[in-house]
Simulated assay, not measured.
Amino acid sequence: MLVKLENEELTVLLNTKGAELTSVKDNKEHEYIWQADSKFWGRHAPVLFPIVGRLKDDFYLLHGNKYSMGQHGFARDNEFEALEKNDNSVLFELSENDETMSMYPYKFSLKIKYTLSNKTLSVDYIVKNNDTKLMYYSIGAHPAFNLSYNMENYKITINDGGSYKHIPLNKSLSDFEDTDELNANEPIRLNREFFKDDAKIIDTSDNSINSFVLSNDKDDYKIKVNAFNCKYTGIWSTYPKDGSFVCIEPWWGIADTTSHNHEINTKVGINELMPTKSNDYKLNIEFI
């Protein structure tokens, strides 16, 4: 089911399946969000939970038990309940069910609140441990933004510049033994070859706020993603397919490392949550 938020500037559509952002249009009908053409990539902006990226061999170990889970977890494929709704905000919630318990043996609550104000959509993720044992999890965003022109016309500006540790992917796993530096002192010019080796993942843990501005040479449309205390950020598009989108993905977690021993408690970037406790994660997207 689609849920609509709107004001004088923007109309936003969200799907209760996955609590996924599916459309953002301005009053000139300009669409900012990728429209999920399955020839290239059939999603818009999936929520990544309770893992980000891929598990090594698609399984993890917890207290001696083996659990299998696909890339990015199960939240994106589950139906959320819309708890509260008005013209400018909606609160979704996902809790455990029989299927999730077979993959992830926790009672939990994942609430996601979207709030529209002027040209900004704020997103709040609230993770709560409703179980009696320590809970391990990751969470992340994966919004895909429409490209109206050839990719070569676009650039991404990261914060006020600087150099960031780049963690390459090796068969979808994080290769911390082959890191290098991504120089962002100048805006990063995009092209298809930029994604030849999959997503560009950078360590953004040193900053309390990370800002990414997607702009182009042809018009004044811009998108600014502001993420708060995110550990890593992925930048991704299709290769070699010529998908007309780019994803800017704030993550509080990361794919398993190439040398991981499958134990979830030793997973790089994993978060811990005590019983009855909750953690909040925030980002906002400015559609300029």
Rank of each mutant, 00 (worst) to 15 (best):
H166C: 09
K200V: 15
T257A: 04
F212N: 05
C247K: 02
G161Q: 04
A184F: 01
T238R: 04
I223E: 04
L169R: 14
D178K: 15
G162D: 08
S208K: 11
M151Q: 11
A199Y: 02
T258L: 12
D220R: 06
R192F: 07
L214V: 02
D197P: 01
W251F: 08
R192T: 05
D160M: 03
N226V: 13
H262F: 14
E263P: 00
I188D: 03
P240N: 04
D217K: 13
W236I: 11
E177H: 06
Y164T: 12
N216G: 08
L214D: 04
F194K: 15
W252D: 07
F195E: 03
F245A: 07
K231R: 08
G162W: 12
Y232C: 08
I156R: 10
S208T: 14
P240Y: 01
D175P: 11
M151S: 04
L169C: 11
V225T: 10
N185V: 06
T258I: 15
L182M: 13
P250E: 02
D178F: 13
N185H: 13
I156S: 10
N183H: 05
I188T: 02
Y221K: 14
A184K: 02
I201N: 07
D242T: 13
S215F: 03
F195N: 03
S148G: 03
F228S: 09
E181I: 15
Y232R: 03
D175H: 04
K171Q: 15
D160K: 13
N153T: 05
F176D: 06
N226M: 13
P187R: 09
K196M: 11
S163D: 13
T179V: 15
K155P: 01
K224Q: 08
S205G: 02
I202R: 01
N210T: 15
K196L: 02
N261Q: 05
Y239T: 10
N210K: 00
S174H: 08
R189G: 09
S174A: 15
S259I: 15
V213D: 00
I235F: 05
I202H: 01
S211F: 00
D178I: 09
N210F: 00
V246P: 12
V225D: 01
S237K: 07
N170H: 11
F195H: 03
N261T: 10
I202Q: 00
H260G: 10
T258S: 11
A184S: 11
Y149F: 15
S172N: 14
I209E: 14
I254C: 07
F194T: 13
T238Q: 05
K155M: 09
N210Q: 01
D217I: 11
S208R: 03
D175T: 05
S205Y: 06
S237F: 02
K200E: 06
I235M: 14
T179G: 02
N170G: 00
